[in-house]
Design a protein around this nucleic acid. Structure first.
Length: 582
RNA sequence: GGGCGUGUAGCAUAGCCUGGAUAAUGCACCGGCCUCCUAAGCCGGGGACCGCGGGUUCGAAUCCUGCCGCGCCCGCCA
């Protein structure tokens, strides 16, 4: 239910009549009609500057003339005016009120369902025995939000957590596990001391030749399917997953053990990838390795850039496993699209993988393979946060800190909240703040990790939106009536603040569509903030419970109800909760 | 060297795909507002040659092009 489109549809016949009268072809003016870019001027605008050539008259005069011709016909739906060569059309409050009534009585708030497609959404992807850091936060939070939005639009979203659970480092990790003793190692991993575990293993690998040799032999055993080695490997994976699940639970994301699709699970498919590429005749041998040349790429020396499928030592590569994934998603899962919520640095990698997958016929052009890329996480000095050296900010600690800060803010602002309720709110607000900070900026840009900003309760932040929601709940606690009855309330829109808010509320469905069709949660954030902000103005200027009449009170309560429902749904689609009080 | 991305008030961002009017929002700054539904708020104000130069167009932050700054990628790692 896109109200601007409805408005345009309703006004077009009258404009058509006027333009016919003036002798202008449809193709000369219909494409010009669009949303007014300056909100104060109207909802829909027709710029007349390009018509000046046809009429040989200044745009201002043309606009005035059109305006005069349509004014009477549009009387029941909109007011028309002309300014500096634009015809501006503003929906009348009564018309707007009808639109909002439709949203109000609709449990889906006017959001349509699309033709259902199946998407595999690849996100989060932590590495076994390695700490989760802010980069994983981005992937996890963005991916989760996209899954929620897709599902709400009627699609099937298959969550795939492509956990890094395979490869050469596992030799040294398993040997380190044995050195420590299984119990102690499991404990260390389970409580989330992943970083030191990995670093210790790494340090020994570099400094101790005997250990390094044991590690290499262990890799061979692992790849050979040795059962004791696999058992030890399982311990590493399970203990890490226990810890990851704890972080997921704190974050409140949808990922569960059912969504784990570790790299190890594609091992059986890898020889199949090689066979198929060979059958297609695109596999070549280069320096002992099996490679594909996707074409169009060159390396530093200007030579064609290969994608390595099987290394000279017989081992497989990341690209191979990504190709296997595509086969799996097309043939087993029947996906129409695959989304990879992975950082921008891997852009070229994915372009090459998609190119090869199409060349080899693993997928067809009808499949949407999309790298939902995101920028790097920078520290406060604008440098990329690196995990290899220096202290990483553990995701777990970060979330604890967010909750702690939210709690101390609640203690200060609203000391009446105590015990479990305060703890719940602190969690909702703290975690919400972190997630929102990440989701609210355009995902392809680099993201500055800043405690102060992300936990600040001012501006375009989750707490600001949550506060608007809590204020509405507070109004309903004071009101005696039945909230359900408001879905049929008549909306009386007279004050400027009511009109601004109602337009923002009516824009919600198109904002969500725009957000999901570009896989850009920040567009929804921007819109939710504009709703919350116009609600705050409305709240200050139009007293709800002390409205001029019973009808006005009901109308304003209905506005509150719709605002609350949109905020709750919108934040919910980003995996952010709303507190009844704060 | 080749490729990709990015540059918008002191700071942080939106707008760029799909060109339109006085470039929007938040923080910070200045000035107002709580006997009144939560002041985590509201109202008002100052602050931007939209990196620089060309081009296309009636019209460019937006499209094309050339520079400059910054970042990333170009590994038999993932």
């Amino acid at each position: 239910m896109i109200w601007i489109r409805d408005l345009i549809n309703e006004m077009i016949p009258f404009f058509s009549k006027a333009m016919n009268f003036l002798g202008v072809e449809d193709s000369n003016w219909i494409p010009l009609i669009g949303r007014a870019t300056v909100e104060d001027h109207g909802d829909v605008a027709l710029p007349c500057h390009s018509l000046a050539r046809i009429f040989r008259k200044p745009p201002q005069e043309i606009a005035e003339q059109i305006c005069a011709l349509v004014e009477a016909d549009l009387d029941s739906i909109a007011t028309v005016s002309s300014i500096s060569g634009f015809v501006n059309v503003s929906a009348k409050p009564e018309w707007l009120s009808k639109c909002l009534s439709k949203l109000l009585s609709d449990p889906r708030l006017g959001i349509g369902v699309e033709k259902p497609l199946t998407f595999a959404v690849d996100y989060s992807a932590p590495n076994v025995a390695k700490e989760m850091h802010v980069g994983h936060l981005r992937s996890t939070v963005i991916g989760d939000s996209i899954v929620r939005m897709l599902e709400f639009k009627g699609h099937q979203a298959i969550r795939e957590n492509h956990v890094g659970d395979w490869g050469t480092p596992f030799g040294m990790l398993i040997e380190h596990l044995l050195d420590l003793g299984e119990d102690q190692a499991a404990n260390e991993l389970g409580v989330g001391d992943l970083d030191s575990f990995y670093k210790q293993a790494r340090a020994k690998f570099v400094s101790n030749d005997a250990f390094a040799n044991r590690s290499r032999s262990r890799v061979v055993l692992l790849q050979g399917g040795d059962s004791e080695t696999l058992r030890l490997w399982r311990v590493l994976v399970d203990e890490s997953m226990r810890y990851f699940n704890e972080v997921y639970s704190m974050l409140g994301v949808l990922l569960t053990d059912q969504d784990i699709r570790g790299e190890s699970s594609y091992q059986d498919l890898l020889p199949e990838v090689v066979d198929r590429l060979m059958r297609e005749g695109i596999l070549e041998t280069s320096e002992g390795a099996d490679v594909v040349f996707p074409g169009g790429w060159v390396n530093r020396d200007g030579a064609p850039l290969p994608m390595i499928i099987r290394k000279a030592d017989g081992g497989y590569n990341y690209s191979t496993s990504d190709l296997a994934c595509i086969i799996d998603r097309v043939e087993r899962l029947g996906c129409d699209g695959f989304l990879y919520v992975v950082g921008t640095p891997q852009k070229q990698h994915f372009e090459m993988v998609f190119q090869v997958a199409e060349q080899a016929g693993f997928m067809s052009p009808s499949h949407q393979a999309i790298h939902v890329n995101f920028g790097s996480v920078l520290d406060i000095d604008g440098k990329v946060l690196k995990s290899r050296e220096g202290e990483v900010i553990k995701l777990h600690d970060l979330l604890d800190e967010a909750i702690r800060r939210a709690e101390s803010a609640i203690n200060e602002k609203n000391p009446e909240l105590v015990d479990d309720e305060r703890d719940d709110i602190a969690r909702t607000v703290g975690i919400g703040a972190v997630k929102y900070a990440d989701l609210s900026t355009e995902r392809t840009k680099d993201y500055v990790f800043d405690w102060e900003r992300m936990l600040s309760f001012d501006g375009n932040t989750a707490p600001y939106l949550q506060y608007a929601y809590a204020r509405i709940c507070s109004i309903f606690r004071k009101w005696e009536g039945a909230r359900d009855s408001l879905t049929s309330a008549e909306l009386i829109l007279t004050h400027p603040e009511e009109l601004v808010l109602s337009r923002r509320l009516a824009d919600f469905p198109s904002a969500l569509d725009e957000s999901i069709s570009t896989f850009s949660p920040h567009k929804l954030c921007t819109h939710l903030h504009s709703i919350a902000s116009s609600f705050a103005s409305f709240y200050e200027n139009c007293n709800v419970l002390k409205g001029e009449s019973e009808e006005v009170i009901r109308s304003r309560l209905a506005m509150c109800d719709l605002t609350a429902r949109e905020l709750k749904l919108g934040l919910g689609l980003m995996g952010i909760g709303v507190p009844e009080r704060m």
